[in-house]
Amino acid sequence: MDFELSEELQDIRTAIRQLCDRFAGSYWRDLEPDRYPEEFVRSLTEHGWLSALIPEQFGGSGLPLSAASVILEEISASGGNPGACHAQMYVMGTLLRHGSPEQKRRWLPPIAAGELRLQAFAVTEPTVGSDTTRIQTRAKRTGDGYVVNGQKVWTSRAQHSDLMILLARTKALSEVAKPADGLSVFIVDMRERGESLTIKPIRTLMNHATTEVFFDDLELPADALVGEEGRGFRYILDGMNAERILIAGECVGDGRFFTDRACAYASERHVFGRPIGANQGVQFPIAKAHMAIEAASLMRWKACRLYEQGRPCGPEANMAKYLAAEASWQAANACLDTHGGFGFAHEYDIERKFRETRLYQVAPISNHLVQAYVGQHVLGMPRTY
């Protein structure tokens, strides 16, 4: 196994860092509490980075998931927030792997050109949370399409997206043998939603542009269905594996940001006539966080490799997300402790990134659920819930 990044991935890392250098900490601070980073996302789009996974025949770069992972990692490591645009990376997998040739020809070129944004991933519902197979949003078949009614929550960037990937029930729970059956995926053109689709922003701890979405007799054409009717949960799992791998990359980047800042401050800050980094109580937590980040990064690369080979990668994707989220949170705490009172000062960006990386303890999947998944599906222990 080669642990060195390829020349292509190293070039991508350099290019993203150069782009991010134009958007310093002051840019991100000035966006808070809830302004979307339009200029940053536009720059990523114009340079082709948000179309990285789209095949060249449709105007994209045709890069593998590992390249997308590096893109998001470097945005995080630079002090930026890739949560503003990461969905276009992982949502893309659902359309790429399961969309029809006609859907790909229709949607992928304008997405690649930056004419359309695919940023919304509507899965979670307020009454069921992480129990995705129990969702209630219903898409009923009509003569020439579907009519959707229901509600979603934590549908981030919906108000900044032209297209949405939607998971809905085409058969009620009472009509299927297993809860995972009867779920279907749709691609929704939100530019023509009218009053049948309502988006309500949710204010949160960090600037993440998340929303509630309400469907009130939303009419969809038959060709909005992605893949086969009733197989949507399986399609969404593909997207979730990509999502967890990419979120792991973001967390690795967050961890690098925190350890870099902590090391610099610990070396420069002098108290009692010596740099504070010479004290083991300061140095050792940073060193431990760095080791955890490096280990999580390796699991991320393993998951990427399996995904790119088309092999099952559910355990690796989940473990990569868990390990990276834990490592970034460990690094965040070490960095805040190192900075002391200055870590809470807005101008240092530590408290902002501290809030941003805390999200990944609970999203896009709770770390508790990852432990339950590994315990049951990897280790074969009894089901917890």
Rank of each mutant, 00 (worst) to 15 (best):
T211A: 13
P364M: 10
H377F: 14
K178G: 06
M190I: 03
I350L: 09
E32P: 04
F272Y: 12
V128H: 09
T198C: 02
P64V: 09
A303R: 15
R234N: 00
W329A: 09
M92K: 14
R300G: 03
Q283L: 11
I350Q: 07
A363C: 05
S100V: 06
T142S: 01
S6Q: 00
G182L: 08
W28V: 07
W154A: 10
P110Q: 05
I111Q: 13
A172F: 02
P64A: 06
F186C: 09
R42V: 07
F23W: 07
I245H: 04
G150Y: 09
L218F: 13
A52L: 03
E38Q: 15
R138A: 11
A331T: 08
Q119F: 15
I199L: 06
L5A: 05
Y360H: 15
E192G: 08
V70Q: 08
E316S: 14
N149W: 12
M190S: 08
R117V: 00
Y322W: 15
V370Y: 02
E175D: 13
H290P: 01
V147F: 02
P364K: 13
G375M: 09
S328G: 01
H86E: 12
D181M: 02
L359E: 00
S366P: 01
L218M: 15
F272M: 11
Y385I: 00
A317Y: 07
M190A: 15
S297T: 08
I286A: 02
N149I: 03
G253K: 02
F257K: 04
D189F: 07
S26I: 07
A317T: 07
I12L: 15
G83N: 06
P82A: 12
S297K: 13
G114R: 11
G25D: 09
V147I: 12
V213H: 03
G194T: 03
V123R: 09
F3Y: 14
I187Y: 04
A262E: 04
A15G: 07
R203F: 09
P126V: 00
S51Q: 12
D11N: 13
I165F: 02
K140W: 05
R274N: 08
E243S: 12
K178D: 05
Y146S: 09
